[in-house]
C-alpha cells in the first residue's frame, strides 16, 4: 500500500496494523523497528532499504563515514524527513511518515548535531520546554495563575530540577543558556530530551567537539539514563572508542546502505566495515 494514499486519510500516517505490515514489524513488541527505510533527495539516494531493530533498554550506535546517511536516518525517525519507502514503528504504532509535532507525545526525544537550544531562555526554561507538550493550561490560565497552571508549573519545576540534578546542571539552572560553555550546552540539550522520560532517545553526535573528559561524562549520563528507565537509545557518533564502549549493538552505514550490524566486537572485525570506515590498523 503506497504511503501517499495513507497520508491523506484518517489519522494520517497511521498504518492499519492488520494489513500489509511485515512479520518483522508485528513480531517485536516494544522498542523501535525501522523496516526498509529509503530516502532520496531528487536523484540522490540518501538511504536505501535500511532496516533496524532496537530493543527496549538497548543502546544502538549508528556509525559510518561522512555522508553515509546517519543524520538522515535520525531525521526520518523524528519526522523532519519523509521516507520515500518503508515504515517506522514506535511502541504499538506504525508510521509511513512520522509526525514531528507528535513525536514528544509518542515518547521520542532527540538532540541535534548542531546545538538546537533556545539561546534566549535560561537553562531551566530550555529544559522545561521539553515538557510543554504535556501542558494543559493555556494563556488565560497562566496569565491569571489559575490552579491548574500553578500545579503544572510546580510539577514541571520539580521534573526540571530532578533531571538537572542527574546531569549536574543544578548550579546553572538560572543562567542564560547562551552564556554556558559548549560542553554544558550539549548537556542541557540532553536534559531537555530526557525531562519528559522518553521511551526512545535519538542522539545525533552528542559528543562532537567535546574534550575526552566531557565525552566520558556524557557517555556516563547516557548510560545512566538507559539504566534508570530502560529507554532505547539510537546514537550517532564518530568517536569509535566511545561508541564501542557505550553501545550494545552497532550498525554501520555506508552510502546509505547498512553494511554491518552486530555487537561492537563483531563490527570491529567485519572486513567490510574496516574497508569502508575503520581502516586497517
Amino acid at each position: 500500500m503506497p504511503g501517499a494514499v495513507l497520508r491523506r486519510t484518517g489519522p494520517a500516517y497511521l498504518v492499519d496494523k492488520t494489513d500489509t505490515v511485515s512479520p518483522r514489524l508485528a513480531a517485536v513488541g516494544a522498542g523501535v523497528v525501522l523496516d526498509g527505510i529509503s530516502l532520496s533527495f531528487g536523484g540522490i539516494r540518501a538511504l536505501t532499504d535500511v532496516s533496524l531493530d532496537v530493543a527496549p533498554g538497548e543502546i544502538r550506535a549508528v556509525i559510518g563515514p561522512n555522508g553515509a546517511g546517519k543524520s538522515s536516518l535520525i531525521n526520518v525517525l523524528s519526522g523532519l524527513y519523509q521516507a520515500s519507502a518503508g515504515r517506522v514503528r514506535f511502541g504499538g504504532r506504525v508510521f509511513s511518515a512520522v509526525p514531528p509535532q507528535e513525536l514528544a507525545a509518542l515518547g521520542v526525544a532527540r538532540t541535534f548535531q548542531n546545538l538546537a537550544l533556545f539561546p534566549g531562555l535560561s537553562v531551566a526554561d530550555n529544559i522545561a520546554a521539553g515538557l510543554s507538550f504535556r501542558r494543559l493550561s493555556g494563556i488565560w490560565g497562566n496569565v491569571f495563575s489559575l490552579p491548574l497552571a500553578r500545579q503544572e508549573r510546580a510539577a514541571h519545576q520539580d521534573q526540571v530540577r530532578e533531571v538537572a540534578d542527574r546531569l549536574h546542571l543544578t548550579a546553572d539552572l538560572d543562567r542564560l543558556v547562551a552564556t554556558l560553555p559548549y560542553g554544558l550546552q550539549k548537556r542541557v540539550e540532553l536534559a531537555r530530551a530526557l525531562v519528559a522520560a522518553p521511551r526512545l532517545l535519538l542522539l545525533d553526535e552528542p559528543m562532537a567537539g567535546m574534550t575526552a573528559t566531557e565525552k566520558a561524562e556524557m557517555a556516563g549520563f547516557v548510560r545512566a539514563a538507559r539504566d534508570r528507565s530502560g529507554l532505547s537509545v539510537i546514537l550517532i557518533e564518530h568517536d569509535i572508542g566511545v561508541v564501542m564502549g557505550l553501545s550494545d549493538h552497532v550498525a554501520v552505514l555506508d552510502h546509505g546502505v547498512k553494511i554491518a550490524d552486530g555487537t561492537p566486537d563483531q563490527v570491529r572485525r567485519d572486513p567490510e566495515v574496516i574497508r569502508a570506515y575503520l581502516g586497517a590498523a
Binding site: 509535532q101 532527540r110 533556545f118 520546554a129 507538550f133 497562566n142
Partner: peptide, 25 residues
C-alpha cells in the same frame, strides 16, 4: 509564564521547538 517561554522557543529554533513538542502552529 511558561507560555512566554514557548514564544521564545518558537523564535529561537522553530524546528527544535516542533520536535520537542512545543505547539508551534
Amino acid at each position: 509564564s511558561p507560555i512566554g517561554a514557548n514564544l521564545i522557543a518558537v523564535r529561537d529554533n522553530e524546528t527544535a521547538a516542533r520536535v520537542i513538542g512545543v505547539p508551534v502552529l
